[in-house]
Design a protein around this nucleic acid. Structure first.
Lengths: 206, 206
DNA sequence: GGGTCAACTGGACTCGCAGTACAGTCAGGA
DNA sequence: TCCTGACTGTACTGCGAGTCCAGTTGACCC
């Protein structure tokens, strides 16, 4: 189990890299089985079709992303107990993380899936939807906590503000992919961080 | 020329609708020719391959988007000469426009292309890149004009702020597609508008 | 009225990839 | 020893992209 990554995970690793690089349809099962050094039969033993592969990839990706956010904001919380500063530190860590990825961030499976969704079944689409709703809830909660301490200078819709985290990341990754630059996503996150500073800072409630 | 839309445009219309709905690879030439009521031979008479179709679609889309921005901010300028207020009005108009589209915005070909870019040749990718760089320049110019009148409360990278317009739109459209909601993109634009208000307002230079 | 050209039609073919089917192999545990 | 899970290998169907090409049709030109 350490010596040799199990075949299913190996397929997912290879597939994820290929899909993020060139999209789902452009990735053939042929090249996945070549990369994973198995036979075509072996592939279909693990995944009944490409749709099942997509579903498994999305699940894995969403879990990893959630674990990453958990970890990031837990670390931020250790550094500062104030909810606003915790958020600001967390976003900084996120931006740094995106920047440090040498090849640039792999790009988000969510957007990739959203723009090819007719290829997938309802299960995959719902997975996608639930992931974004989960992030909305997560960040909305954090913003509400902040708003209890700092009065926002302008009224904002908290659901939309929660979505903005995902939106800024997704949008940044789209720019990054299209421009072939390396740090658009992290720059966008830092701009969003400045937004939060302007929205909440220096107006602590009595 | 009015009676009967020329075949090439008809192909592009059908193809664009199909591609925005389900992605490029998922759209077959078969269904395009069926929709446009021509033969397969007829399709290949106009476009040497699917890549040429993609290129033509992107070109058309980018031109339309640019014309739309020109029009939007020209109208905004008529309503208010101040560069900040012009921008705020323009964004409001953009948000309203996105909201009014009954089926929701078709989604942005840019993101769609970015996430499947290995399907396309360098020409298509470059078209995509140039479009975003054009929008960066457009909005960066507008923000610099604003900054000459209003001192920003926080230092921001003007290129990144220019990119943020595209990023927020793209990100919003990704959310909208994935969530199957109707107004995420316009909400995100309105949040970005609030950002600009906080960043620039009430600090007019002497 | 004949010639020419652009804009097609229609059919036949190749190729690559998804997906199916199934028979056989092989290692490890009950 | 037999069974089972995890495969391998091969052969086949079907679809869509792309190629080739011969033929049709209508408009305009002389």
């Amino acid at each position: 189990m350490d010596q040799k990554v199990d075949t299913r995970s190996r397929i997912l690793n290879i597939a994820e890299a290929a899909v993020l690089e060139k999209g789902f349809e452009a990735t053939s099962i042929e090249e996945i089985v070549a990369g994973a050094e198995i036979s075509r039969g072996g592939f279909f033993y693990h995944f009944k079709d490409k749709n099942a592969l997509a579903r498994a990839m999305l699940e894995r990706y969403i879990n990893a992303e959630n674990a990453l956010y958990d970890d990031l904001f837990a670390r931020a919380r250790e550094l500062n107990d104030d909810p606003l500063h915790c958020m600001l530190i967390g976003l900084k860590l996120l931006a740094e993380m995106l920047e440090e990825m040498p090849t640039g961030h792999p790009g988000c499976v969510i957007a990739s899936t959203a723009y090819q969704d007719r290829l997938f079944d309802e299960g995959v689409r719902d997975l996608n939807r639930q992931a974004i709703l989960g992030w909305r809830k997560r960040f909305r909660g954090m913003f509400e906590e902040i708003a209890q301490v700092y009065e926002p200078r302008e009224a904002v819709n908290m659901d939309a503000l929660g979505d903005m985290v995902s939106g800024v990341v997704e949008g940044g990754l789209v720019l990054q992919r299209a421009l072939r630059e390396h740090n658009n996503a992290s720059e966008q996150i830092m701009l969003f961080r400045t937004y939060l500073k302007l929205l909440f800072a220096d107006k602590q409630r009595p």
